[in-house]
């Protein structure tokens, strides 16, 4: 199943925050660098497997448990409703 961003949330780079943030009505969540890298891959077409392999291509030297971290973050992001199953 492909993943898409919930249109309620907007992912954006903020210079003043020195990183990416999620913006929503009257609120903001500051994202860690790795969280931002994952959400940047969510485009409405890629599945979780696609996202993991894209990030492995991008960061070939990342630790072995990177895929597990991605799973954990994506399930958190779904719980928070930032990311939806297409």
């Amino acid at each position: 199943m492909s993943l898409k961003m919930n249109p309620l949330y907007r992912l954006q780079y903020e210079k003043a925050q020195n990183g990416h943030v999620l913006l929503f009505p009257e609120g903001m969540v500051k994202l860690s660098e790795s969280a931002a890298e994952i959400l940047l891959q969510v485009d409405g077409e890629r599945t979780e497997t696609d996202i993991k392999s894209a990030l492995r291509d991008k960061f070939p030297d990342a630790p072995e448990d990177m895929e597990q971290d991605i799973d954990e973050f994506l399930s958190h992001a779904k719980e928070k409703n930032w990311v939806l199953d297409e």
Binding site: Q12, E14, K15, A16, Q17, V21, L23, E26, G27, M28
Partner: peptide
């Protein structure tokens, strides 16, 4: 320019 991001 100062970093404001939420605007009401």
């Amino acid at each position: 320019e100062m970093g404001a991001v939420q605007l009401g």
